[in-house]
Computed example of a mutant assay.
Amino acid sequence: MSESTTTKRVTSADVARLAGVSRATVSYVLNDTPRQTISAGTRTRVLDAAARLGYSPSAAARTLRTGRSDVVLCLLPDWPIGPEVGSMLGRLSSALTRHGLTLVVHPGNREERPMTELWKAITPAAVIAYTEFSDADVAAMRAAGVAIVEAVSRRKGRSLAVPQELVGRRQAEHLTRAGHTRLGFAYPDDERVRFFAEPRLAGVRAACAALRLPTPVGLTVPLDPAAAAEAVRRWRATGVTAVCAYNDEVALAVLAGVRREGLTAPDDLAVIGVDDIPPARLADPPLTTVTTDQTVVGAHLAATVVAAISGRAAPDLPAADIVRVVRRATA
């Protein structure tokens, strides 16, 4: 006959018994409650007992006691979580931790599980979203005391995220300063990243329009050498001498197409990517790219969350200062 066992959660009562103090004293010590006179020896006994038992205070109890959760729920669209998004989330988590907040990320689309179910289940202090909320969602969260941070909002006429048009502009400006007057744009074949790709293309177009250059020749480039080689042939047939790729992965595909055609970069076709992923430095030749300081982005978004929770205005993001070209050999 099999015997099932369950693990009993360690409670503050267990810590109190081991330390030889009351549960109230445990609460005062672990919550660093002000205006409580507790000796250094007692405090040490409580902390040692909690560490020995592996005690972790209940988040639900803490929420009831303080009236506020320490969780920040970040809702992502159905994006592929690549190095850049992963870096942003890591920096954001670290920055929120310094404010005593815990980041919980939920990737995917809202059709799989209604957003209302998510925030009600987690009871966060704040919700961050990279898509807009409905008016009903906004009203419900505000009524529940949940702070709302829309990283991108047409209603507010501003973006708390790095403007992707600026990323495209940086690419085009770098290439045109090098003397290129006919540019191409390598568009990704993954529909999930249109959120980034469309504004980057718009930025490249705007930079060319400002210099009265021809409209960039946009082509979709799969991560396939043969398909990329076909795009390279089409660009060269239209006089394109340099390509702004949606990101580094697409740029690496373009470089594969260049090699497949027996050509070289940048002599036959200059290429610039976005994100500065590790393989960009290992490419042959090393890939010129555009990078964003994700430490600043994470700290800014964390400060925005803290401001929203406190009812203060959000700080400005110094986007122009943190988006820069990393010049290597391909452009």
Rank of each mutant, 00 (worst) to 15 (best):
A16S: 14
R17H: 10
G41A: 15
P34G: 05
G41S: 15
R9D: 03
A16T: 10
I38V: 15
S22D: 04
N31A: 13
T5L: 05
Y28C: 06
G41K: 06
D14E: 11
G41Y: 02
R23F: 00
L30V: 09
Q36L: 06
S12A: 13
V15T: 10
T11E: 09
A13E: 12
L18T: 12
S12Q: 14
T5D: 11
D14K: 12
S4C: 01
Q36C: 05
T11K: 01
A24Y: 04
S4D: 03
P34E: 04
T33P: 02
S22A: 10
N31S: 15
G41V: 15
V15E: 14
V10L: 06
A24R: 02
A40Y: 00
V21F: 05
G41I: 13
T37Y: 06
V29P: 08
R17V: 13
V10M: 07
Y28N: 12
I38Q: 07
I38R: 04
A13M: 09
L30N: 08
L30C: 07
S12W: 02
T6N: 08
T25V: 15
M1R: 05
S12P: 11
T5I: 04
S27H: 07
L18R: 15
S39T: 15
S12G: 10
R23D: 14
Q36Y: 01
T33K: 02
R9Y: 03
R9H: 08
R35A: 14
S12Y: 09
T42Q: 03
S12V: 05
T11I: 05
Y28P: 14
V26L: 08
S39I: 04
S4V: 08
A24C: 05
R43C: 11
R35K: 01
Q36M: 13
A16I: 13
D32I: 00
G41F: 02
T7K: 10
S22P: 14
V29L: 07
S2T: 10
T7C: 00
T7R: 10
A13L: 13
V29S: 05
E3A: 01
S27W: 01
V26M: 06
T37S: 14
E3H: 10
Q36I: 11
T42M: 03
V29T: 09
A13T: 12
Y28R: 07
D14C: 12
A13D: 13
V15A: 10
E3F: 01
E3V: 04
T6H: 03
T5R: 05
V10P: 06
G41P: 01
T5C: 01
V15G: 09
S12L: 12
T25I: 12
T33R: 03
L30E: 03
S22Y: 04
R9C: 04
E3L: 04
A19P: 15
T42W: 00
A13I: 09
T11H: 07
D14Q: 10
V26I: 09
S2P: 15
R43Y: 12
V21A: 06
R9K: 13
E3D: 00
M1W: 02
